[in-house]
Amino acid sequence: MKTLKILVGVAFIIAISAFAIDKVSDTEIDKGYSIGDIATDFSLKNIDNTNVSLADYKEAKGFIVIFTCNHCPYSVAYEDRIITLDKTFKSKGYPVLAINPNNPKAYPDDSFDNMIKRSKEKGFTFPYLFDDGQKVYPQYGATKTPHVYVLEKTPEGNVVRYIGAIDNNYKDASAATEKYVEDAINALLEGKKVPVEVTKAIGCSIKA
């Protein structure tokens, strides 16, 4: 009888766990874009006080949209790599558009003035946009800084082709053995399927 009770208890736990996993999966699907979705355009203020949108890039083949910020150590660790991505792929039709999604009231280091300061310090070669009111990052489903979305421009719109991390080693670029964003864009430029479409973004949580 004791054994039967244990088995029933285990079965109950498994059933509850399975339900919980399903609910988490459903919740995740409801948040932001998935691979193959069409990303809507935005118009956000750049550090030069102009507004920037995807539609401004008439000749682009796609975009590297990166949610990042000033203060997060993960974002800081990736800054040079983000600059390299822009320098490497902008001329090939895939420019970087960096977006700061954080609420500066919650984290003053991520204020617009500090964005201007940081971009000058690092010599950013790409637009650094402010998600004022935090309206854009929830559409994408971004949760971390940095969090990357590679978009491919098609007749139907800007299709999401990759979501996740830049590579698999935030501490050391030279030690990264998987360069997810670079591999994704190279595949798209060759007309091939992106080899790894989704990875886990590693970074600081977005401050609401």
Rank of each mutant, 00 (worst) to 15 (best):
G36F: 06
G36V: 11
D37P: 08
I38T: 14
T40C: 01
T40N: 13
T40Q: 13
F42C: 10
S43T: 11
S43R: 13
S43E: 09
L44M: 09
K45A: 13
N46V: 07
I47F: 06
I47L: 09
I47V: 15
I47T: 15
N49Y: 07
T50S: 15
T50L: 06
N51Y: 11
V52C: 12
V52Y: 04
V52N: 08
V52P: 12
V52M: 07
S53D: 10
L54C: 08
L54Y: 05
A55Q: 14
A55Y: 03
D56K: 14
D56F: 06
D56C: 08
K58F: 00
E59I: 02
E59F: 00
E59T: 03
E59G: 01
A60N: 06
A60Q: 02
A60S: 13
K61P: 05
G62K: 01
G62S: 08
F63L: 09
F63T: 03
I64C: 00
I64L: 00
V65D: 01
V65M: 05
V65W: 00
I66C: 00
I66R: 06
F67C: 03
T68W: 02
T68N: 06
C69T: 11
C69L: 04
C69S: 11
C69W: 04
H71I: 07
C72R: 04
P73Y: 12
P73G: 13
Y74Q: 01
Y74K: 09
Y74W: 13
S75H: 04
S75C: 14
S75G: 14
V76M: 14
V76I: 15
A77Q: 14
A77T: 14
A77W: 08
Y78G: 01
Y78W: 09
Y78C: 03
E79N: 14
E79I: 06
D80L: 11
D80K: 15
D80F: 08
R81F: 08
I83M: 14
T84Q: 05
T84L: 07
T84F: 09
L85F: 02
K87C: 05
T88V: 13
F89I: 01
F89Y: 09
F89P: 04
K90R: 15
K90P: 06
K90N: 14
S91E: 15
K92D: 00
G93E: 03
G93L: 04
G93W: 00
P95G: 02
P95K: 07
V96L: 03
